[in-house]
């Protein structure tokens, strides 16, 4: 597609682009307050996972020198944010299906705002869910080494969720309907998050699976979050690898998403 003014931001440039993104972030957050049940159920599932793993499987998993709950919670954090990011796919697909995207495209607003408003609003939701999971973790025995480490862990997890929101936004624009967005957003997250260091140490897995687990963004992010919560674990390598993944995913998928947004009708 040739570049023409369809792609240019509305008059006022960056200032309006920011304004429009914030207006739509506000809309997205208001949606959340109008559907509290969605927020509730999106935290119920990880809470069930915490209880299952902590009390049912935990005793059989050897994570010494860490207590299993300290081992588990970083994995839960990362999996929960990955699952929560699917709302970006569903949200965009819904706006497309209901003609809302057409309404926005007929307005003199910044092209990027619909996407930025979606992922930023979903980021707020992700942060909220991570807070809830932190509280649940503390209740079942999670003991972070330091407060600062906990804050950094929450920040890294949220950034990871933000990066995944862009993958989901791309999916939301690429599938034909809302149901497909829901499925296509979810299915791959199960193998991706379970085949990682999230719930059990990699050393207990067959070699080929370890290779896979090490090649995904999930394992380094879980390892980094775990090291931030537990002093004494190796941090630097995992953290750098995780941040690199986050940057690459965000750049690649925001570019793909913006490009797709311009051509969908």
């Amino acid at each position: 597609m040739t570049t023409h003014a369809l792609d240019a931001p509305a008059g006022g440039g960056l200032r309006w682009a920011v304004n429009d993104a914030l207006v739509l972030t506000g809309r997205n957050l208001r949606h959340t307050t109008r559907q509290p049940e969605l927020l509730f159920f999106s935290t119920v599932q990880p809470v069930i996972f915490v209880l299952l793993f902590r009390y049912v499987f935990g005793g059989a998993i050897d994570t010494r020198p860490l207590s299993y709950v300290n081992y588990l919670m970083p994995g839960i954090f990362v999996q929960t944010t990955a699952f929560a990011s699917t709302s970006s796919a569903v949200g965009l697909a819904t706006d497309l299906a209901k003609g809302i995207v057409d309404r926005f495209r007929s307005l003199p607003m910044a092209r990027s705002a619909v996407l930025a408003g979606r992922t930023l609003g979903d980021l707020c939701r992700i942060v909220l869910v991570v807070f809830v999971m932190t509280a649940v973790g503390l209740a079942v025995g999670l003991r972070p080494s330091s407060f600062l480490g906990l804050v950094a862990a929450i920040a890294l997890t949220s950034l990871f969720g933000f990066a995944f929101s862009w993958i989901q936004a791309f999916i939301g624009l690429s599938v034909p309907n809302v149901e497909a967005a829901n499925l296509a957003g979810f299915v791959w997250l199960f193998p991706l998050t379970f085949a990682s260091s999230a719930f059990v140490p990699l050393r207990s897995m067959p070699g080929w699976l370890q290779t896979f687990a090490n090649a995904t963004p999930v394992t380094p992010t879980v390892d980094a979050v775990r090291a931030l919560l537990n002093d004494g674990l190796p941090l630097q390598h995992a953290l750098l690898k995780s941040l690199a993944w986050i940057v690459v995913i965000t750049v690649v998928f925001s570019t793909l998403t913006v490009r797709t947004y311009r051509t969908v009708s």
């Binding site: 003609g99 809302i100 057409d102 007929s106 307005l107 003199p108």
Partner: peptide, 17 residues
């Protein structure tokens, strides 16, 4: 876009607002 208005074939309203 500043000077036109459009109402499409299907009402494009936000149901949650």
């Amino acid at each position: 876009r500043r000077v036109i208005g459009v109402a499409g074939q299907y009402a494009a309203v936000d149901e949650l607002l």
